[in-house]
Design a protein around this nucleic acid. Sequence first.
DNA 1: CGGGCTCTTGAATGGTTTCAATGGGAGTGG
DNA 2: CCACTCCCATTGAAACCATTCAAGAGCCCG
Lengths: 250, 250
Amino acid sequence: MRIADPLQDSCAGAATRDCRHGLATNGCEDCKVRLFSVCAALEVPELEELDRISQAREVPARTTLFEQSTLAGSVFNVTDGVVRLYKSLPDGRRQIVGFALPGDFLGLALQDRYGVTAEAVTAVAVCRFARPAFLAYVDDKPHLLRRLHEFAGHELSLAQEQMLLLGRRTAEEKIAAFLLNMQARYARIGTVSVTVPLPMSRQDIADYLGLTIETVSRTLTRLAREKVVLIVPDGVRLLDLERLKLAGAS
Amino acid sequence: MRIADPLQDSCAGAATRDCRHGLATNGCEDCKVRLFSVCAALEVPELEELDRISQAREVPARTTLFEQSTLAGSVFNVTDGVVRLYKSLPDGRRQIVGFALPGDFLGLALQDRYGVTAEAVTAVAVCRFARPAFLAYVDDKPHLLRRLHEFAGHELSLAQEQMLLLGRRTAEEKIAAFLLNMQARYARIGTVSVTVPLPMSRQDIADYLGLTIETVSRTLTRLAREKVVLIVPDGVRLLDLERLKLAGAS
DNA sequence: CGGGCTCTTGAATGGTTTCAATGGGAGTGG
DNA sequence: CCACTCCCATTGAAACCATTCAAGAGCCCG
């Protein structure tokens, strides 16, 4: 994982996109995630227009991108790193509703307030758009709106799958499904491997699966003892996919 | 709640919209739910066009509208009654991901397979559209796509709220939030009342909240004993909104 | 009136949580 | 370079909330 550029603040403040250190190089056309992100719906001339309203930005781990219930001033495309999206209860209980990986779009719903809080889990690179500018940009591009809608539909499906997991699966099934799901997501963005990176903490995993940190730890330990997985630094190697799928399949 | 017209099958089979018994009267313009459904984005001439590709349909309770994983041949607008949307695990465990009320749109994601199963809880009236026809209809109407996207964004927010509920709330909080939520939803479609209709079974409520039927029953009984609610046939009267909000607030 | 269904209630079990202590790396400062 | 601290993860034991198992009550409908 790339370390955040210490100059990121000078970049964040810039009104234009002349901000080409680090991951953002020559604008949208060269973007690493273009082909599997929302932007794949756009032609080159449109990309150049998008370039003009975008700001590449890099932030270190644990940076808050935006907060639940605040006015949605920006939307983001994640280009590197992992972001956690969560909702909180007044007493501090937290539910992570998703982890955003490179290619994921934050603020898909285009609503005027953020429904969740977004925090960088690792160092993160994003493409940032002022919401009014982005809305204006979308306005005369039905094919982009279509693409955004497709993404939203996909998100909705994932959310429903997660409801099934949260409401009806056991701790072991939750962990198994989570690992398989993360593996599949990394595969889609080009990192096919039986070793699944888990940059988030055990507490994050617990808050994503509706468990406690102790249950996550115990369950992973048990799966490791049974040679279903091998726990490695910042990740897990999946040893027995069949056994995992037995528990985690939908 | 209106009882399903026994002639509904003759209606369901009809290719055109000449099917005006029961709730569907003079087409979209007179539609009871038009103003708070997706269709509110449409002008009168567009509504007439929509009329031509729509089929009003009434089905009795427990009818399956569509099934999880099957090809999405139709999309629906619910005009009367209550529909449950759920996902199932191979061993029979079930998670209801939502109850659709009048004005709700089924198949919002416009994906080619249904992600959930939809079953009528009560007698239900829907406006049905063949998916290809609907897609063609949407194609040159960006404002409708925009409206669909808004609805999808709203759905996504609800789903995230439900994840918080499923993952982090206690049984009592789940019940309280459910009752307040149903009350608010009925209020939006015109039925403002402290008596909340609950046409679905206890098992449905349990499967929606990630509980067992016994826990739902016990919790409701306790709330009734504590004079927070009054259980009435097919519903609940909310007596102590403050107390409920204390438990159910986000 | 009886059958079948849903809902309620009680008692016991259990999976997960809570509480508590230990282990182990990363970073810091002496 | 090594103690020291801090934080995160692991592990153990006890407690608890929700579930499971079981029985009874209520209700609709033939």
